[in-house]
Design a binder for these strands. Structure first.
Length: 326
DNA sequence: GAGAAGGAGAACA
DNA sequence: TGTTCTCCTTCTC
């Protein structure tokens, strides 16, 4: 446990997860593969039909739409960023043309970009898997997993609730549905849900291709001071504890730093910046839609007696401390 | 008013 | 049985 999934090892560990804040900031128009919004595009991700059809290009196009104006991206990749998409050609999956006149992408840097993009998409899904405690392959989902994924995706992209429309559907049934069927069940967000499911299916497909065997995400997200073995519960089959969940969020500052962050990592002191969001995430994780911070904090306080969490010496609101930080 | 603290009982694996 | 959820009251900031 705690090792990076095969096929991801060549990916830069730099965290550029699909952060909820990005999703929330940009809305669905940036995500869902551009299938919604005023500039609706008809691009719907599907796994490459042939090995020659590069997966990297597939994910790169996904990334293009995910972060079309992410200024930091250019700084992270020391090469020319992904080619600007022309306003037209909505039917085509954009392909990077490293030979294009004026392009400063050489083959090496292109590979760097491609591998990073693929890695980030997979890490993104991996994060959701861990938080929701579901497998990466939608085909394996139970109806309850499907509901979790729906709840998650709806929140991420501010879609209208569609859980009831997909009730009793397992992953296999879900995967077999066309975009039109998604739209019929959820007229307002069905296309987005379908696009996202497509991305998950593609990722699972690729994962299977690159690493024969079971798909399981037990990725390393280790940052000094905390070890995955004590935090990553999602692969153990054991129900996750709240304190583990909090550590998981703390380990993903790029994704959840707006909600919860370290004040003093060495001492294990952290602050819940957005109590409602943390409670909501916990509720999604535990399938408790009625979860709120009042209840979550009560659970945290139960840890006082157990010596897992305590209030710091200088007590502050929304600030807690892990008794054994390492 | 929001958060903290803690009692008490229920639910669940 | 242990853990977490839920509801509640009281107190503090």
């Amino acid at each position: 446990m705690g090792s990076a999934s095969p096929g991801l090892s060549d990916v830069s560990p730099g965290c550029l997860l699909l952060p909820p804040d990005v999703a929330l900031r940009t809305g669905v128009e940036k995500t869902a593969a551009g299938v919604v919004g005023p500039e609706k595009r008809e691009w719907s991700p599907s796994p490459p039909a042939t090995p020659e059809q590069g997966l990297s290009a597939f994910y790169l196009s996904y990334f293009n739409m995910l972060y079309p104006e992410d200024g930091n991206w250019g700084a992270k990749v020391p090469v020319a960023s992904v080619r600007e998409e022309p306003p037209e050609e909505p039917e085509q999956c954009p392909v990077i043309d490293s030979q294009a006149p004026g392009s400063s992408l050489d083959e090496h840097s292109l590979e760097q970009v491609q591998s990073m993009v693929v890695g980030e998409v997979l890490k993104d899904i991996e994060t959701a898997c861990k938080l929701l405690n579901i497998t990466a392959d939608p085909g394996d989902w139970s109806p309850s997993n499907v509901q979790k994924w729906l709840l998650w995706t709806e929140h991420q992209y501010r879609l209208p609730p569609a859980g009831k429309a997909f009730q009793e559907l397992g992953g296999k049934e879900l995967c077999a549905m066309s975009e039109e069927q998604f739209r019929q069940r959820s007229p307002l967000g069905g296309d987005v849900l379908h696009a996202h499911l497509d991305i998950w299916k593609s990722a699972a497909w690729m994962k299977e291709r690159t690493s024969p065997g079971a798909i399981h995400y037990c990725a390393s997200s280790s940052e000094e001071g905390w070890t995955d073995s004590e935090v990553d519960s999602s692969c153990s089959g054991q129900p996750i504890h709240l304190w583990q969940f909090l550590k998981e969020l703390l380990l993903k500052p790029h994704s959840y730093g707006r909600f919860i962050r370290w004040l003093n990592k060495e001492k294990g002191i952290f602050k819940i910046e957005d109590s409602a969001q943390v409670a909501r995430l916990w509720g999604v994780r535990k399938n408790r839609p009625a979860m709120n911070y009042d209840k979550l904090s009560r659970s945290i306080r139960q840890y006082y007696k157990k010596g897992i969490i305590r209030k710091p010496d200088i007590s502050q609101r929304l600030v807690y401390q892990f008794v054994h930080p390492v």
